[in-house]
Simulated assay, not measured.
Amino acid sequence: MNRLFAEWAAVLGDVRRRLRARGLRALPVTLTACAGILALQLLQHSRGTSGWVERLGGVYADLPWWQALLRTPLSVFLPDPSLPMWGLILQVVVVFGIAETTVGPRRTLGVALLATLAGTGFARYSLWAGPHWPFGLPAHDLLVRDTGPSAAVVALGVYVALRYRAGWTVATIVLAMVVEVVSLPNLAGYEHLAGVALILALFTHEPALLRRRGRAAPGG
C-alpha cells in the first residue's frame, strides 16, 4: 500500500503544479467532456431530442462498422440512462483531469477514443463468436447500447500509471478488472480489459513510434 501511495505522490505533485500554473486552462478536454455528458444526459431525456442523440451517439454491437466509427466520438460522452450521471462526471473530472495535466490533451483524447474502439471491437467479436467460444457472451448481453466513458477512464488510469512507471498501480487496476470479469462476466468488464490490453500493447511500441515520427519530421 505504501508503494501505491508513493507512486501516485509523483503524479499528484505534477497535477498540482500544472493546475497552479495554468488553472482551468490546463483542462480543456476534461471540462468539455463534463459539459458534453451533462448536455447529452439532458437531451436524451427530452422528448424532442432523444431520437437524435440515439442516432448520433448510440453504438450497438450489430451496427455496421462505418456507423459505429462515426458515432464513437460522441458515444464516449453519452451516459447510460440507467447509471447515475454524477458518478460518471466524478470519474471524468478525476481521471481525465489527471491524464490531461500529466500527459497532455492530445494523448488523453487519443487514449480515450482508442480504448472505446477496443471495447466496440470486442463486443463485435463476442457477438460473432457466441457464448461457447472464449470471451463470448450471450446475445442478450451484447445487444444493448454500448456508450459511456468507463472504458476510457480505466485505460487512461493505466496509461498515466505506465508513463510514471507506477507498476503497482497498473497491477492493481488490471487485477480489479480481472476480478470483475471473473466474478460477474459482463460486457462492460470485458470492454475495460480490451481497452487496457490495447493500451498496454501500444505503450510497449510507443518509443519506437515516436522515434520513427521524429526521423520523418523535417529536420528530424
Rank of each mutant, 00 (worst) to 15 (best):
residue 62 D to K: 00
residue 157 G to C: 06
residue 2 N to F: 15
residue 152 A to M: 03
residue 164 Y to H: 15
residue 143 L to M: 12
residue 150 S to K: 03
residue 78 L to F: 13
residue 34 C to F: 15
residue 156 L to D: 00
residue 144 V to F: 12
residue 151 A to W: 03
residue 125 Y to N: 02
residue 60 Y to Q: 06
residue 38 L to A: 15
residue 117 L to V: 14
residue 56 L to V: 06
residue 133 W to D: 08
residue 77 F to T: 11
residue 123 A to D: 09
residue 178 V to W: 08
residue 5 F to L: 11
residue 61 A to M: 02
residue 92 V to T: 05
residue 96 F to S: 02
residue 64 P to I: 09
residue 159 Y to E: 02
residue 177 M to F: 09
residue 121 G to D: 01
residue 101 T to D: 00
residue 194 A to L: 03
residue 195 G to P: 10
residue 37 I to A: 08
residue 151 A to H: 06
residue 216 A to C: 10
residue 149 P to S: 04
residue 31 L to I: 15
residue 8 W to L: 12
residue 156 L to R: 00
residue 34 C to Y: 13
residue 81 P to V: 06
residue 91 Q to C: 08
residue 218 P to C: 03
residue 106 R to I: 14
residue 54 E to D: 13
residue 7 E to W: 09
residue 15 V to W: 07
residue 42 L to E: 02
residue 91 Q to I: 08
residue 100 E to R: 03
residue 104 G to Y: 05
residue 86 W to M: 10
residue 156 L to Q: 01
residue 129 A to P: 09
residue 25 R to F: 15
residue 33 A to C: 10
residue 13 G to E: 02
residue 102 T to V: 12
residue 55 R to P: 04
residue 98 I to L: 07
residue 86 W to G: 08
residue 199 I to F: 12
residue 145 R to D: 04
residue 198 L to I: 11
residue 104 G to H: 02
